[in-house]
Computed example of a mutant assay.
Amino acid sequence: MLGHVVIDGVDVPEEGGEGVDHIGELLSRVSQGDEAAFARLYDLLSPRVFGLILRVLVDRSQSEEVLQEVFLELWQSAAKFAPNKGQGRSWVLTIAHRRAVDRVRSAQASADRDVRVGFRDMEVAHDGVAEQVELRIEGQRVAQALETLPDAQREAITLAYYGGYSQSEIAALVGAPLGTIKTRMRDGLTRLRGELGVTT
């Protein structure tokens, strides 16, 4: 059974709910300066958001910094959420993913210098350093490729691979049939493979 929380006299379910975007409702209240709604939003989504960021950045301390940046942006920009363009949860996860990728890009020049020094001074660690840089570059390519997908396909893939949701959970979140979600993910992944030049 779904839990509920009362925010300023309004009963807001914690998770799920058919056809109702509860995260979107919280974002609407946050846009009006509702601190209790913001605290609830943080409690509900910070574990998912942190996990997403950590997958991109790997570094835990940087991930914690970006987590705070994401929720600061949500507090300041909640009014930009457009309910007619998707679910609140996927909007938040998209912001988090973009923030994480931005952090990777902004640190890339410094990382490149560190890698060059690492190649000279720590030959034993060479393979590990090269692999980490390769993973970060690949993460950027995937993020850029995701931006080329139609909104519905990008939303489904973002929720699955960055949010950790099953196809059934995604269907419930976005209010679409399970078969539709499977089709969106299949078609979206096919397009992603094309964008990334993957032929297998």
Rank of each mutant, 00 (worst) to 15 (best):
M1A: 03
M1Q: 12
G3A: 07
V5N: 04
V5D: 06
I7F: 03
G9I: 06
V10H: 07
V10P: 00
D11C: 05
V12E: 02
E15Y: 14
E15L: 03
E15K: 14
E15C: 12
G16A: 13
E18A: 13
V20K: 02
V20T: 08
V20F: 06
D21N: 04
I23R: 01
G24S: 03
L27G: 01
S28M: 05
S31C: 04
Q32L: 15
G33H: 11
F38Q: 05
F38E: 07
S46Q: 13
S46V: 10
P47Y: 01
R48K: 13
L52A: 12
L52N: 04
L54C: 12
R55S: 04
V56F: 08
V56I: 15
L57M: 03
L57A: 01
D59K: 05
S61F: 08
Q62F: 00
E64A: 15
L67R: 09
E69I: 02
F71N: 00
E73A: 13
S77M: 03
A79Y: 11
K80T: 15
K80W: 00
K80P: 01
K80Y: 09
N84L: 11
N84A: 14
N84W: 10
T94D: 13
T94A: 14
I95D: 01
H97E: 12
R98N: 15
V101G: 02
R103V: 00
R105T: 08
S106D: 10
A109W: 12
A109G: 01
R113I: 08
R116V: 07
G118F: 07
G118A: 03
G118W: 06
F119R: 15
F119E: 09
M122Q: 13
A125E: 15
D127M: 02
E131Y: 00
Q132K: 10
L135Q: 15
R136N: 05
Q140H: 13
Q140M: 14
L149V: 08
P150T: 05
R154A: 14
E155Y: 01
A156L: 11
A156T: 06
T158K: 00
L159D: 02
Y162A: 07
G163A: 07
S168V: 13
S168M: 11
E169N: 06
I170A: 10
A172F: 14
L173Q: 12
V174P: 04
V174H: 09
V174R: 05
A176D: 02
G179R: 10
T180G: 06
T180W: 10
I181V: 15
T183H: 09
R184N: 11
M185Y: 02
T190M: 07
E195F: 09
T199I: 12
T200K: 03
T200F: 15
